[in-house]
């Protein structure tokens, strides 16, 4: 950020004429206002346009509360799982040299490239009642798809690269010297990780967790495919929004949507805050 600000103070030789600057800023900001600002305000206006009471009622409806609970449960499983994966993957990839590293990175990136609908579909193919594994599961009364485990799996898939992708470049940039110094001073592996590596990556880790959590709570396509849309049971918040909207219950739909929007705004706020923290940290280093 500070970089951007300092570079905006410049000599006139390499500056556009003032009308050009104003035009570009107007076009850019106008574009963002229409594309992002308007939908954002529409959510809150629609949610509240019949007053605060129906808004609260929609939020406190048992189905809505069930959706909140389920969303929290799914995120509470998916995020820690991806943190464990991200820490292991970044340790192995950033701190060691081995062949095939680039290929491994591409594999980790795969879920980013796959349509959310396909991410849901693969679990239906694997665990659905028509598949061998699925039949065995049904016989043993274990339900995965159209139930909570399916939602969790699809969410893990969708958010799989988030933490790892945040940590790998950070740890690569930090190199291995501090860890080597710690080992030379007699620290064991766990002490080195906990006292040297972890404090160095904590902001990056938090950043990854934040993005991972936002996506986990907001994912729609993948969970929509595996959910089965059972009200009060397998509906996460985004799915609940869809059901209410399709029932033309717009106030309730936007009320629930406003919850998710607030989550998104908080995420952005924390993200900006952390980027500032990052930037100063980088400058100090």
């Amino acid at each position: 950020m500070s970089n951007a600000e300092s570079s905006s103070v410049k000599s006139t030789a390499v500056q556009e004429p003032w009308w050009m600057r104003v035009l570009l800023i107007a076009v850019g900001v106008g574009f963002l206002l229409v594309l992002i600002g308007l939908p954002l305000s529409a959510v809150f206006v629609e949610a509240l346009h019949k007053g605060i009471k129906p808004y609260w009622q929609s939020l406190l409806h048992p189905d809505a509360l069930a959706a909140v609970r389920l969303t929290l449960i799914v995120a509470a499983i998916a995020v820690p799982f991806n943190v464990l994966f991200g820490l292991a993957a970044s340790w192995a990839i950033a701190k060691f040299e081995f062949s095939g590293k680039q290929f491994l990175l591409t594999l980790i990136d795969l879920p980013f490239a796959v349509s959310p609908v396909i991410s849901g579909l693969v679990y239906i193919l694997l665990f659905g009642a028509h598949a061998a594994l699925g039949r065995w599961l049904v016989d043993n009364d274990i339900q995965i798809v159209f139930a909570v485990p399916g939602l969790v799996l699809a969410t893990i898939f969708i958010t799989f690269p988030f933490v790892a992708r945040e940590l790998i470049p950070l740890m690569q940039e930090q190199g291995t010297e501090e860890e080597e110094a710690a080992i030379l001073l007699g620290a064991n592996g766990w002490q080195t990780f906990r006292r040297v590596t972890l404090p160095n990556i904590k902001w990056g880790l938090l950043y990854g967790v934040l993005l991972c959590n936002a996506r986990a709570m907001g994912e729609f396509g993948a969970v929509s495919v595996v959910s089965g849309h059972i009200r009060g049971e397998t509906n996460t918040l985004p799915l609940h929004v869809e059901i209410l909207y399709n029932e033309y219950n717009f106030v309730a739909a936007f009320a629930v949507a406003s919850l998710l929007t607030i989550l998104a705004l908080i995420t952005l706020l924390l993200k900006s805050f952390m980027e500032m923290k990052f930037a100063t940290g980088k400058k100090r280093h």
């Binding site: 010297e177 501090e178 001073l185 007699g186 620290a187």
Partner: peptide
């Protein structure tokens, strides 16, 4: 490039080797 532990104070850096025993 010294590889000092950047999140530790000077004192903590020097004490590290003794504290991890």
């Amino acid at each position: 490039h010294y590889a000092l532990f950047r999140h530790m104070s000077v004192f903590e850096n020097v004490a590290f080797g003794l504290r991890v025993r």
